[in-house]
Write a protein that binds this DNA or RNA. Structure first.
Length: 488
RNA sequence: CGGGGCGUAGCGCAGUCCGGUUAGCGCACCUGUUUUGGGAACAGGGGGCCGCAGGUUCGAAUCCUGCCGCCCCGACCA
């Protein structure tokens, strides 16, 4: 393990990449824009999945799986939707390889051309709605509440590990309802699920809001979002939930017979979060010593480091603490590697973001105590061996709360208001973060502001205060402030 | 797709301008000894299609031509 990593101040991008690689979360792969998620990173993702999946099921959803490939023709059925994704699709054109007659390995067999090309799904609305057509006949078939855990591919021009990769893992919920009201309520409910998960588990405060028409999902009537603020003052869209209206029902002709024996198109939603959340997790909490993982998502809660090395008495104390932790459901590893010195281990586990380190040293043990070090603050305390497990339990809770509070404080400090364009620009340039400002409600103004400042409207907060004002760019009247920021 | 950078051991790099012994350094790895309370020291050892393909030359990591790939910054997007 290399000594030290680039500081956030020196280069935020380098810092981020080094955390990802050196903490063992992921690596660049041989394929452009695609990453290998390594065991340690995948373990954290699995914890996220487990929690989210549990909540989806508690809210009545079931999991299913749809094909990776989508016939090209499906994508042309919903005009806006195609337009949104057309530029970034991977296309399968052939189904066979053959030996190169010139002896240069294998080539695509030109005779194995597909009659209709297949698109590697960038999202599954089309294949799913094509299927729902057969599943939905009556109001009794509704609501249909399905989620799938899958990989999708979007041929992005520029990629960054976890934040934007050509292939990424996600879940996508696709639901069908009898009424508009029910579908909107579903979209809102799932946004709440995401927000609760982000705040309670990831310790990442988010702002719930609605996207402007310009930022809306291709094919949606309304897009809800949770927006988080990263340590460099840029916003990260961390989850979205869409009210799709009847667009896909009409495009794929999905009708049901209502109780009055009349045919109606169904109302739809879709919602998703992805491995991008990993990027949010990293950029919300980590520091210049490495990764910091909130206890509720940590692959490993605590690690025991024998000082200076394992031995009968230290082993005994370690076993005792491990047994007590096990009972409390706290995961712990006893690092018995005698070839590495304590200092090395301290640095290594800090890099990996293990929330609590238990140092068991000969000297301390004579006094019957061990040392607890918390990753978030670096603070060290001494506790009696018998009290260690309950102290650690408390510490994990404290760390979880502290991480959330710290992130919330950062966001509060980096949320400003601007009433004129110069101030607006200055805040974005000097301080970053969210800026609340009035906007005249037009796409043109939104685009112009983006052009001038690189900031976009992250959302119109759901609980937004109504307030008369003037658009910072055009001076036209506005009835509420919207949330601007530069974004990932 | 525009701008920049890079491809040499698992990782990080030097060597390339100006061709010439056996391609080198740090970390990691293996063996041994002494160590061990914040990234140990010494000794010995293993590991290379120098991105790929052509060319120039007595001789190419180095020069020429072509190709491929990756990263960073921007425009596009979760």
């Amino acid at each position: 393990m290399a000594k030290g990593i680039t500081s956030r101040e020196e280069s935020y991008a380098d810092w981020y990449n080094e955390i990802v690689k050196k903490a063992g979360l992921a690596d660049h792969s041989a394929v452009r824009g695609c990453m290998v998620i390594k065991p340690y990173g995948f373990a954290i993702w699995e914890k996220m999945q487990a929690q989210l999946d549990k909540r989806f099921k508690e809210t009545g959803h079931v999991n299913a799986y749809f094909p990776l490939f989508i016939p090209k023709s499906f994508l042309s059925k919903e005009a806006e939707h195609v337009e949104g994704f057309a530029k970034e699709c991977a296309v399968v054109t052939h189904h066979r390889l053959m030996n190169d007659p010139n002896g240069n390995g294998v080539i695509v067999d030109p005779t194995a051309k597909l009659e209709e090309e297949l698109i590697v799904r960038p999202t599954s609305e089309t294949i799913i709605w094509n299927t729902y057509k057969d599943w939905i006949k009556s109001y009794r078939d509704l609501p249909l509440l399905i989620n799938q855990w899958a990989n999708v591919v979007r041929w992005e021009m520029r990629t960054r590990m976890f934040l934007r990769t050509a292939e990424f893992l996600w879940q996508e919920g696709h639901t069908a309802h009898t009424t508009k009201g029910e579908a909107v309520a579903e979209a809102r409910q799932m946004l709440d699920v995401y927000a609760e998960f982000a705040e309670e588990y990831m310790a990442m405060p988010v702002i719930k809001g609605r996207k402007t028409a310009n930022e809306r999902f291709a094919g949606a009537e309304d897009t809800y979002t949770i927006e988080a603020l990263m340590q460099d003052g840029k916003a990260l869209q961390s989850g979205t939930s869409h009210f799709l209206g009847q667009n896909f029902a009409k495009a794929f002709d999905v009708k049901f017979l209502n109780q009055n024996q009349k045919e109606e198109y169904v109302w739809a939603t879709s919602w998703g979060v992805s491995t991008r959340l990993m990027g949010g997790l990293i950029m919300t909490h980590s520091d210049d010593n490495g990764l910091i993982v909130p206890p509720k998502l940590a692959a490993l809660h605590a690690v025991i480091v024998p000082i200076p090395k394992p031995g009968a008495e230290i082993d005994e104390a370690a076993m005792k603490i491990m047994a007590a932790l096990k009972e409390k459901g706290i995961s712990v590893k006893y690092d018995t590697d005698a070839k590495k010195r304590p200092g090395f281990k301290f640095a290594e586990y800090e890099l990996q973001g293990v929330p609590v380190r238990i140092g068991i040293g000969k000297r301390d043990l004579e006094k019957g105590v061990v040392e607890l070090a918390r990753r978030d603050t670096g603070e060290k305390t001494q506790v009696p061996v018998d009290a260690a497990a309950s102290a650690i339990e408390q510490l994990l809770e404290d760390i979880q709360n502290n991480l959330f509070q710290k992130a919330l404080d950062y966001r509060t400090e980096h949320t400003s208001s601007a009433d004129d364009f110069d101030t607006f620009k200055q805040i974005l340039e000097e301080k970053g973060g969210f800026v609340k400002a009035h906007w005249d409600g037009t796409v043109e103004t939104e685009k112009k502001i983006k052009e001038l400042t690189k900031a976009t409207i992250r959302c119109i907060p759901l609980d937004n205060e109504q307030e008369e004002g003037k658009c910072i760019l055009t001076g036209k009247p506005s009835k509420e402030r919207v949330l601007f920021a530069k974004a990932y």
